[in-house]
Write a protein that binds this DNA or RNA. Sequence first.
DNA 1: CGGTTCATTGAGCCACATCAAGAAGTGTGG
DNA 2: CCACACTTCTTGATGTGGCTCAATGAACCG
Lengths: 246, 246
Amino acid sequence: MSKLTPIVPCTTCPIRHSAVCAECDSDELAMLSAIKSYRTVPAGAPLASAGETLEHFSSIVTGCATMSRTLEDGRRQTVGLLLPSDYIGRPGRAQAAFDVEALSEVTLCRFERRAFEKLLRDTPHVASRLLKMTLDELDAARDWAVVLGRMTAREKVATFLVSLARRQMAVALGDPIGGPVTMHLPLSREAMADHLGLTIETTSRQMTALRKDGLIELPTTRDIRIPDFGALALEAGDDGDGGLIV
Amino acid sequence: MSKLTPIVPCTTCPIRHSAVCAECDSDELAMLSAIKSYRTVPAGAPLASAGETLEHFSSIVTGCATMSRTLEDGRRQTVGLLLPSDYIGRPGRAQAAFDVEALSEVTLCRFERRAFEKLLRDTPHVASRLLKMTLDELDAARDWAVVLGRMTAREKVATFLVSLARRQMAVALGDPIGGPVTMHLPLSREAMADHLGLTIETTSRQMTALRKDGLIELPTTRDIRIPDFGALALEAGDDGDGGLIV
DNA sequence: CGGTTCATTGAGCCACATCAAGAAGTGTGG
DNA sequence: CCACACTTCTTGATGTGGCTCAATGAACCG
């Protein structure tokens, strides 16, 4: 289900400057390296299950995962989309609060929970970085509540595409304002629907509607081109004055 | 709009064991006391405005507030209900991400932002407590996403009442399982609707429906009695196996 | 080339929103 | 203490956005 991956030096790690280790100096990186291990799992693999123990704190190095909860009757809501540098697990608690599932092949940089908790106490740069990331995640989760609670299906889909494009561009180094953007959709229509609090049919219909309105192009169902990023952002109700952050 | 409140010693503070100071020893409390100040604001007063500067980090000592965002066209979504020991503001950023408004008279224990950031660096017990509280808030925000995205109006209202009762009981010391509960509703129907992603009419109708079904009693519109807490929890889709946390 | 999975599209319905009117509670001034 | 205004809550009537059910289409794969 998962395979061990050779350990690479932190200096060449793609998330060196955005993960929990971002603020670390070389001495601290050495401490991290001493206890880290990598793990790679295929698309579809579970990375955590709500209520079950989770003995590692992991950062996503490459790939994409969802965090979700499923109610007893099968209704599912995704509560977070995890991209490189996002973390899974929490210090001080061995029990996972949500299901986490790999959407693509995912490579994790992992620390055994106890060892990571010790690290938090010993290396202030890790603790402060984790606090900052958690505060950012909290803001993002609250922003998403506005989407789920108050937006129409069309706004939800447009907001999702815009925020996904922003995050992908943050990793790469594109110009975030205006012009055309091309990207791969890491989520199926069903995963998008679960994230947006919609059904798969409504999600599909809104994608079609946005396409017919010329706001997006769909060379394949999993690839999207946004000819005018600003126009789509407007559709998302994002007037650029700092409404949403996600 | 706000009035200065006499400073009381931390040892008699009602949130001494649940706020950011919870883990502090007496020496650390002395450091906090040296820079804290109190402020009391009347119901309805704004405690923060999205996009504007917020030069204090504050804990709610008594009272109740909402954190919300309003879209340009007037749609509003509450993203957090703040009760005693919850905090307002964030270290490392002077700009508020959301509006915060007092629902009742609120007394705050405040720290000037820069001084609090220094405190975070110098007193590990404050930093670790803040991290733990933020992780808890993040879990709660994600739990709430499930409510907003996937629950029916009836389930939303029941879930809200159950979680409010749980939080109030946590402050007091009631038995959380089973039996009857009586509490004051700190929110108007409109504030409830904004929190639940519903209209005020639907919220009112669901309250009436729960009353007619014998699940709640409403001696006044702002006071509620839950004759059988377990029955209402069931209505909320909470089977007690650790679904929701909020 | 059939089987399987995923996405799209259509038809009809229903939960919740919207629009509108009362009712109940709250405060103010005479 | 009452009269009046005002706000909040409740209830009713109607509309509609998104859900449900159902079928078809497209991509992938052995």
